[in-house]
Write a protein that binds this DNA or RNA. Sequence first.
DNA 1: CCTGACCAGATTGTCAACAATCTGCAAAGC
DNA 2: GCTTTGCAGATTGTTGACAATCTGGTCAGG
Lengths: 245, 245
Amino acid sequence: MTFERLPDLSTAELVAERIREALLQGTLRPGDRLIEADIAAELGISRGPVREGIRLLAAEGIVVLRRNRGAVVTSPTFDDVLEVYVVRLGLGLLALNHAMSLDAASAPEFDDVELLLRRMRNPGVQGDALLMMDADLHFQSALFDLSGLTRVTAVLDQTARDIPVFVKVLGITYDELDHSALIERHERLLHAVRQRHRDAAAAAWRDHVRCTVGEFARGYPAAQFEGIFDLPLMHHVFDHHDNLG
Amino acid sequence: MTFERLPDLSTAELVAERIREALLQGTLRPGDRLIEADIAAELGISRGPVREGIRLLAAEGIVVLRRNRGAVVTSPTFDDVLEVYVVRLGLGLLALNHAMSLDAASAPEFDDVELLLRRMRNPGVQGDALLMMDADLHFQSALFDLSGLTRVTAVLDQTARDIPVFVKVLGITYDELDHSALIERHERLLHAVRQRHRDAAAAAWRDHVRCTVGEFARGYPAAQFEGIFDLPLMHHVFDHHDNLG
DNA sequence: CCTGACCAGATTGTCAACAATCTGCAAAGC
DNA sequence: GCTTTGCAGATTGTTGACAATCTGGTCAGG
């Protein structure tokens, strides 16, 4: 095995990727219409694959589809980002717990995850906040994959694709994010999962989500989100892990 | 306002619906290939909408897509059903808790939910186990909608569409399911949510999922699922609600 | 007998043209 | 003046034809 799998993305997925890139670049903004024919012409392909790509983005919640009226880039609110993180918190706990229950979750599988964690230490990555976020989400995805819960990880991966886009279009600043603290949290998380310390793992994951959202909330222009963790959105479901980490 | 909204399903959604029906009827079975041209010919339309409908089912996990090789009906295992229910357990708790935190979740919204619950008492529904399951899932969906968490409810609704199909193709028998007990559980659940008794609601929801899965496990031909609730899959994440209901 | 290139049929992927629908505006009716 | 109707342009929805790809088998060469 010397060759890595070919990318093998369908044209539709490539189209979706391009649109996502345009959103991250700021070329495309919330409320903008996505006109199939225009995009097809720009990419030099026909409307079919473009249409399919737009549907993929619609399934992710990045664009809104209205029957016979086309697709519009979503205008997410900060609450949408919160909702995404609440889903990640919940399903992530599910995945981590299940991963720790599997006999198969031993050394070899963990090495791949460790590799992704190491990539976050790369100085080239540390410079770019977007690359950092990408590496971060990939690490988390690999960790969740250990669970073998394909439906759960599919939803988690979908939210992972949403996050950079939402963060960008909302103008959330997160440059002050402490990279070494982030990596340290992930090391704690990975170690806990590897050692199957359920409660420590749950606490570490919860801690990471809280820190990330907390950082976003700080940088967010509006002041109404200061008491973000006091919002009922984040409470009452997973609190029992607090006293265990 | 004398007219009800038109159904307004896209052709693709109608196609997906037909394929789901074929699955429920047994006309289509796990492993069967879905050939775009054949389905298009049978339905008297062209391949485009059929293709789109198949993609919708793929997003739901009902069919598996392989690049350039077409779509095949999934062959779900009982573990897949378990995974679906674990997701519903987790996200359902999230939705219910958030619904109970909203000021707006007052009488008028609850009336619609109550209506759906009453529909389950309809003798015509009680006769047909499939209709019962459908009414049940609709009630749950309406309840979750109260949360206003669109991403969470979208995933929940997707799992709701999966359940009847998976139950059918796996040959799970659930006829012995006690309808009055089911309705009674739902009444408890609705009452708890309405009164905003967080812990009672969580316990009731958890109880419902456990009973449903337990019933399925009983009817399932294989014997390996007797200790289903001892599986780590169902443990360690939401257990703290046990001592509160 | 085994290996690998090649071919034919089936099926998906893409395309460009056509039909159906929506939007906004302008004109007609009250 | 206000509402309603009817149109024109823009855009999506659908279609049938064509191109690319995959599958399985056949056949030549070793």
